[in-house]
Design a protein around this nucleic acid. Structure first.
Lengths: 366, 366
DNA sequence: GCGAGGATTTCAACCGCTTGCGGATGACGC
DNA sequence: GCGTCATCCGCAAGCGGTTGAAATCCTCGC
C-alpha cells in the first residue's frame, strides 16, 4: 500500500525548476508554454522546453498566475436553492460553456437570511472570481446593483434588476400566453394564475403575460384568482390554500402556475381539498423538467429552455470579460407547450359566457 | 443612471494603501487584520488600523493571500450529474459546513466521456483547491487513486474506492434490509433487485445487503431477478425492459430499486407493460426526496440522509486540511422506511412457500 | 542613570508566474 | 569591415499579501 511517501503535498515542479533543467530563463519557459507568439522562441529551445516540462509533469500554478494576470478564470454562480430542479438545468448550460472555455464555477447558495454582506459579495470583493452569474436577483436588488455599479462583471440569469444592464431571460409572457391559449382551446374560461413573487422579474412578466393573454381572448381576469407566492413547494401549498379560502366553491377550472415546484404544492392541496386534476381543475406549470412526466397526474408544462438560458448567460459573461459589452437579452427559443395529464376540457362548461358560479359538486374537505 | 464612473474595476484598496494612510508598515496591518496574536499590536495602533481599513473598505485579496499561504480555502466538489436530485441534497450538506467555515466550493460535473485528464484533476494539479470531495469514484478509480496517492486531500462521499482512505458512506446494506423487511412483512416472497452499477461501492453494498436480507428471511434469491444498471432514469428503463425480457410472465411481486432516478424509469416501464404499481408489483426506491411524494404512485422510499453525508464528508475534508487524519466512516443515521403508495401486499399470495409461477393475469403489452 | 528584556514595529524575502525592456547574437547589405 | 536590424533570450520588477528576523522603543530594577 503506497500510502507512505505522500505525507507532504508532493512539491510540484515550478516554472523555475523546469527552467533550470532546460537551461533557460523562467520567462522563456513561460512564454513557450503559453505559446506567447509575441516573442517566439527558437524551434530547438521550444521543443526542449516542451519536452522537459512534459517529463517533469509541470502544471502552472493557477494562483500565482492569477495574481499576476489579475484573472482567476473562474466565475461565481449564485443560486437561490440547490433543491430546485430548475437550477440543475441552468447549471448544465453554464457548465457546458465554462467547461469548453476551461473556466471554473464557484457555486454559492444565497440564503436570504443573512442579507447584507457575508453573502456572495465576498466572492467578488476578495477577488476570487472574475465575474458572477446571479440567479437570485430581485427587481430592485441592492447587492446586485452595488456590485454592478462598481464595474464588476455581472450577468443576471432568469432575472432582471434595476440598473443592472446584463441579463438573460426568456419570453415569459409568451409562456403565459401559450398556457392560456391551451386552456382556452380546451374550452376553459375560468382561469386562475398562481404567480411568482412580485419582486422578481419572472413573476411579474409571467403575470403580465397572463393578463395580456386573457385580454386577447376576451376573458376578464378575476383578481381573487391571481395569487402571488414564491417558487417553492410550500409556496404552492400556501397559494392553494389561499385560493380555496378566497373563493369558496367558486373555483376556477384551470390554473396556470408560474413554477414547477409551486405547481407540485398546488396540485397537492387541490387534491386534498377533493378536486381532481384535471377533471375538476386543469393545471399547467411553468418549466419543463423530466420529473414532470412522472408526477400524479403527469404535468402539462411550458418548456422554458433553462439550460439554454444558462449557456447564453455564461457566454455573455465570458464575452464581457473579453471586453464585449453586456446587454439585456431574451433568448429566442419560444416557450413550448408540453401536453400531459394535468389538463383536460372543463367538466361542464356553462352554455354562454357571463359569470356563473362554478360547479359546487365538490365540497372541499378542508 | 450612475453607470459611468465604473469603466475599470474600481481599483480596490490594497494592504499597502491602508498601511500608508495609517502610517504603519503593511506587515503590521496584515497582523492586525488577521488578529495574529503571536505579535499583537499596541491597542492604539490596532484601533487606528482597524478604523482606517474599515473606512477604506479594505478587503484582502484572496489570490495574493493564497499564493503566500498555499491555501485557497476552497474545495472541489466532483459530481456525476447535476440533474440527479440526490446531488442537491448532498450539496446542501456540504455547503452548510463550508459556509460556516467561510470556504468556497468549486463544483464540477465529471462527465466520464473525457476520461483521463481535463476532468477534475486540473483543479488539483493547478492548485485551485485545497482538497476535493468526490461523488463519482468507482471502486477502482485510477484518478481518485492517483490523486490520493499523491498526498492530495481527498474524501469520497457516498463512495469508496480502492486505496483511498477517506470516505463517508451510509449503511447501504441496512437500507436494503429495511426494504426487504417491509416487503416480507407485506407478504411478498418474490422479490427482485434493480441494483446499481457493480463498479460502484453503493451498488455493490446495496446488493450485498439485499442478498443478506433475503437469506435472513429464508428467501432464495432468483438471479434473473437481479438486474444491474446505472443511477439514471434511462438506466431504470433499461432495467425494467431487461427484467421483462428475462422473466416473461414470471415477474416478481416486489422490487427494491437502488436509486430514485432509476426507480422512476423502472416504474414507467412496468406501467407501460401493463403492471400496476403497487397492485401487481410493489416498488421501493432508495433515497428519500421530496419529489417522491408526488410521483404516480407516490414512492415508498428508503431515507438515506444524503445531506448528512455531505456534511460529514465536508467536515472530514476540512479536518484533514487542519491536520487530522481521514478515515472510512459510515454515518450513524440508519436508513428509514418512508411508506407511501408504491407498496402493498401481493395480489394473491400462493398458499405455501415453494417456487411458483407468478400470476399470468397480465399480459405485458411489450 | 543605565543596561536588560519584553513589547512593538519595521525590513525584506518570498509565494510562482508574467511581461516590459534591454542585451547578446548573428545575418545581411554596402 | 561595420552599422543595422531581426531574432532570441535573460533581467528584474512586480502582483498583494505573509512571516521570520532584526531593529527600535519602553519600562523597570538596581
Amino acid at each position: 500500500m503506497p500510502r507512505r511517501r505522500s505525507e507532504q503535498p508532493a512539491k510540484t515542479a515550478s516554472l523555475k525548476d523546469v527552467a533550470l533543467r532546460a537551461g533557460v530563463d523562467p520567462s522563456t519557459v513561460s512564454r513557450v508554454l503559453r505559446g506567447d507568439d509575441r516573442k517566439p522562441a527558437k524551434a530547438a529551445t521550444r521543443d526542449r522546453v516542451l519536452r522537459i516540462a512534459q517529463e517533469m509533469g509541470y502544471r502552472p500554478n493557477s494562483v500565482a498566475r492569477s495574481l499576476r494576470t489579475r484573472r482567476t478564470e473562474a466565475i461565481g454562480l449564485i443560486i437561490p436553492d440547490a433543491a430546485n430542479p430548475g437550477f440543475a438545468e441552468i447549471f448544465r448550460g453554464v457548465q457546458s460553456v465554462t467547461d469548453a472555455a476551461g473556466w471554473h464555477v464557484i457555486v454559492v447558495e444565497d440564503r436570504h437570511d443573512h442579507r447584507q454582506e457575508l453573502g456572495w459579495d465576498r466572492l467578488v470583493l476578495e477577488g476570487r472570481v472574475d465575474g458572477v452569474l446571479v440567479l437570485t436577483a430581485t427587481i430592485r436588488d441592492p447587492i446586485a446593483r452595488r456590485v454592478s455599479d462598481s464595474g464588476f462583471p455581472i450577468v443576471l440569469v432568469n432575472r432582471r434588476s434595476n440598473g443592472v444592464p446584463g441579463s438573460v431571460v426568456m419570453n415569459d409572457a409568451k409562456g403565459s400566453e401559450v398556457a392560456v391559449s391551451h386552456f382556452v382551446s380546451l374550452g376553459h374560461r375560468h382561469i386562475a394564475h398562481v404567480a411568482g413573487p412580485s419582486d422578481v422579474d419572472t413573476g411579474r412578466r409571467r403575470l403580465a403575460g397572463f393578463r395580456d393573454a386573457m385580454k386577447k381572448y376576451g376573458i376578464p381576469v378575476r383578481e381573487e384568482w391571481i395569487v402571488e407566492t414564491n417558487y417553492t413547494e410550500a409556496g404552492g401549498t400556501a397559494a392553494g390554500h389561499a385560493l380555496l379560502a378566497r373563493t369558496g366553491n367558486d373555483m376556477p377550472t384551470a390554473i396556470y402556475c408560474a413554477s414547477f415546484l409551486s405547481g407540485i404544492g398546488l396540485v397537492k392541496v387541490l387534491k386534498e381539498a377533493g378536486y381532481q386534476v384535471p377533471q375538476d381543475i386543469s393545471v399547467i406549470v411553468s418549466d419543463e423538467l423530466t420529473l414532470a412526466a412522472h408526477t400524479s397526474p403527469p404535468l402539462t408544462t411550458i418548456r422554458m429552455h433553462l439550460s439554454r438560458m444558462g449557456e447564453v448567460g455564461a457566454r455573455m459573461l465570458l464575452d464581457r470579460l473579453a471586453g464585449k459589452p453586456v446587454s439585456a437579452v431574451v433568448i429566442p427559443e419560444v416557450p413550448e407547450l408540453v401536453v400531459r395529464g394535468s389538463t383536460a376540457p372543463p367538466k361542464k362548461e356553462a352554455p354562454a359566457r357571463g359569470r356563473m358560479p362554478a360547479r359546487a359538486t365538490h365540497q372541499p374537505s378542508k
